[in-house]
Nucleic acid binder design. Structure first.
Length: 704
DNA sequence: AGCACGCCGACT
DNA sequence: GTCGGCGTGCTC
């Protein structure tokens, strides 16, 4: 390896997966320069977007070259040479590099922290000297040949349903714009948003090189949508990308998309980070859904990143939802987004009647009001199906001692252990106490640990107890339950869903898992048992989520039956949210919420960032956040950032999880620019603070 | 984040 | 006498 000649050294700016800001300088040895077809006189642009192996401390790591320059950003004596260029595939496209860079800047994280996890695992490992490439080995030999551009006419299935007037209008609007536009398709459940997506894609894909991307909240819950795409574009290769795939499968689809063989990409949030050189349109279905938020590693919003890509690449994006996020609604009212609505069900089916039942003074039977019971009986008698929605899994939320008041608190978390019924041979051990936060699991004590009394009993009702009660109340009904406990067994959920479709289930009990997606044809009644937890939660987004959930659950009813009903049990029937819900009036609700948020100076009127810290030691957490607040105060003062407001550090709503004490510091600003300027300087300072507590910065937090 | 180095407690 | 606990510092 030759040493660089001072005057013509080229330095690669490399992203490495470490939580440090920016890119890292490595000089490019002449052997590598010539390998990528450059000499020291010309800028080696061919290396940009390639994966490289670089020395990192005393180890070797895979990185991605984001740029080349003759300018070093670091002390030149520390700069090491690139060890190896991995040339098993074409460079990652410029639009991808740009998006990753944007995400790193926006979320104030290392470029490599976003870039590397976005690649299939196989592309993140150092290739052994013998194997030429991992990626190409997996490609079928004739894959190059199948890359011939598909004719639009050949690739699209002929039969497609006629559009309703409003679908037609929406499609017309989509096709009438050019360049970057954010469209919002506001359509109630069953209004035929999918058909608009499909016909739009057909038009875009008429260009034989064009690619389109469809993002969905959870692939498993939207089989109809995925299937509809597959059926419509029968002869197109479709890349399906989600976390449930095996590494090999995911790499295979990813590569098909990256190489342009697959012109349609359908995927969950992670799909937004796929490098697509010819992306021409993006659709985000159920754009309000919180699954678009990554909750591990970098907490990015796939919806926001998709809009950023669309803007960078000057292409249109469509946000579809029955209940658009308030951020979206706000952008529509500001005319930053183009609005279109589908206000009727495409089938012409009527919307279900929503009845709000006051359960404040009613003595209920197994948690069910007389109205609910009557409706269930009536529906069963008519041979139709019932869905009961209870967002609380387990048997009872807590175990209680009637003698002394002891409750089954978890010793690792600030939460109660939940009483669960578990499959067991011995009846005596058929129950367990399980913490939903740290998953700790213990046997149920026979006597109260505090007073020794034997009057221990579950308090409250979860889905398991509800199932038991219903078996008692409706002995002849076929009852099934779907929640995460059921879903643990592979295929169990799918089996129950299938059985329900087949009409083999009369009453289906479920948590929020069930709220999305599935259309049960004979479903005529939805009962919502505990609507109240969202009404007065401390989180300001709780009503938005509740409304959207209830609207979605309601949408499950009456897709194919007339006279469908939704019964919502609440202790606060006069809450304005329910008034809007019974009228199916999202517009009214959203406008009212936006107004409230404006009065209270909350997003989307202001912007939030949250500094979260945790440690075994509660004091260390508070000390760190207090120090952080001082630093931020200083920064705001010296830079004259008057639009920024710093709150006091407070314990998180769940103050302790798995022995970790957690607290947070909220920062609010009317100016996004000032907020981000602060975050950039502040995170740099925070890295230098010595503390046993760990911290992370969250931009646009969903929950505060 | 890894991974080193470095200085203090209970074990063969 | 050492194994190993995790505090601290560094990585282009």
């Amino acid at each position: 390896m030759t040493n660089p000649n001072k005057s013509d050294v080229w330095i690669a700016k490399v992203a490495v997966d470490v939580p440090l800001p920016g890119l890292f300088d490595y000089w490019i040895p002449t052997e590598i320069l010539s390998a990528v077809g450059a000499n020291s006189a010309s800028k080696p642009v061919n290396i940009i977007g390639l994966r490289v192996v670089v020395p990192w401390g005393n180890q070797q790591r895979v990185g991605v070259v984001f740029d080349v320059s003759q300018q070093a950003d670091s002390e030149t004596s520390k700069i090491k040479p690139i060890s190896l260029v991995i040339s098993d595939m074409a460079p990652l496209c410029g639009s991808w590099l740009k998006l990753i860079q944007f995400a790193a800047d926006y979320y104030h994280r290392g470029v490599g922290e976003i870039a590397l996890p976005a690649l299939p695992k196989q592309l993140r490992v150092i290739p052994s000297p013998r194997q030429k490439t991992l990626a190409k080995r997996r490609l079928p030999a004739g894959s190059k040949a199948s890359k011939k551009p598909a004719s639009a006419l050949r690739s699209i299935k002929a039969s497609r349903p006629a559009l309703t007037a409003s679908q037609h209008q929406a499609l017309g609007q989509l096709l009438s714009t050019s360049g970057f536009v954010t469209h919002v398709l506001h359509g109630i459940t069953g209004s035929g948003k999918t058909e608009v997506y499909l016909q739009w894609f057909e038009q875009i894909l008429a260009d034989p090189l064009a690619q389109v991307m469809l993002l969905v909240p959870e692939i498993g819950l939207t089989p109809q949508l995925t299937q509809a795409v597959a059926e419509r574009f029968e002869s197109e290769e479709i890349a399906v990308l989600h976390s449930g795939l095996t590494d090999a499968k995911r790499a295979q689809y990813w590569l098909a998309a990256v190489e342009g063989r697959a012109r349609i990409v359908v995927g969950t949030r992670l799909a937004v980070l796929t490098p697509l050189a010819n992306l021409r349109a993006i659709v985000i279905d159920e754009e309000h859904d919180s699954s678009y938020r990554q909750t591990e590693g970098v907490h990015y919003s796939a919806r926001d990143l998709a809009i950023a890509t669309a803007s960078q690449q000057n292409i249109p994006i469509l946000l579809g939802s029955a209940t658009p996020a308030l951020e979206t609604w706000h952008a529509v009212s500001r005319q930053r987004y183009q609005y279109m609505a589908l206000r009727e069900r495409a089938t012409g089916a009527a919307l279900p009647t929503i009845q709000i039942v006051n359960v404040r003074h009613e003595s209920m039977k197994h948690g069910l009001s007389s109205v609910a019971l009557k409706n269930i009986a009536k529906t069963l008698a008519a041979g139709q199906q019932v869905l009961i929605y209870l967002n609380r899994r387990g048997y009872s939320p807590v175990l209680h001692c009637a003698a002394c008041g002891w409750l089954s608190a978890c010793d690792a978390c600030s939460a109660y252990r939940v009483l669960h019924r578990v499959p067991s041979a011995r009846p005596s051990s058929a129950y367990r106490l399980i913490c939903h936060h740290c998953a700790s699991d213990q046997t149920v004590p026979k006597r109260c640990p505090d007073c020794g009394a034997v009057d221990l009993a579950g308090m409250g009702r979860g889905t398991q107890k509800l199932e038991e009660s219903l078996l008692e109340l409706f002995a002849n009904a076929r009852i099934a339950r779907i929640d995460r406990d059921v879903g643990r067994k592979a295929g169990a959920t799918a089996k129950i869903i299938a059985a329900t479709h087949e009409g083999e289930v009369d009453i289906l009990i479920g948590t929020q898992m069930l709220a999305k997606g599935h259309d049960f044809q004979r479903l005529a009644l939805v009962v919502v048992l505990d609507a109240d937890q969202g009404l007065f939660a401390s989180d300001f987004r709780a009503p938005e989520r509740l409304f959207s959930n209830l609207m979605q659950v309601s949408g499950r009813a009456g897709r194919a039956v007339s006279d469908a009903r939704v019964v919502v049990q609440t202790r606060y029937p006069d809450h304005p949210l329910f008034d809007a819900l019974t009228r199916h009036d999202y517009d009214y609700f959203a406008n009212q919420q936006l107004h409230e948020r404006e009065q209270a100076e909350l997003p989307p009127w202001v912007f939030h960032a949250l500094l979260k810290a945790q440690s075994k030691n509660a004091q260390a957490v508070i000390d760190l956040l207090t120090k952080a607040r001082e630093l931020a105060t200083q920064l705001c003062e010296t830079n004259g950032w008057a639009a920024i407001r710093l709150y006091q550090p407070v314990p998180m709503p769940m103050a302790k999880v798995a022995h970790q004490e957690r607290a947070q510091l909220l920062i609010e600003s009317g100016s996004r620019k000032q907020l981000h300027q602060l975050l950039a300087l502040w995170s740099e300072q925070l890295r230098a603070v010595k503390s046993p507590a760990r911290w992370q910065l969250e931009v646009d937090p969903l929950e505060i």
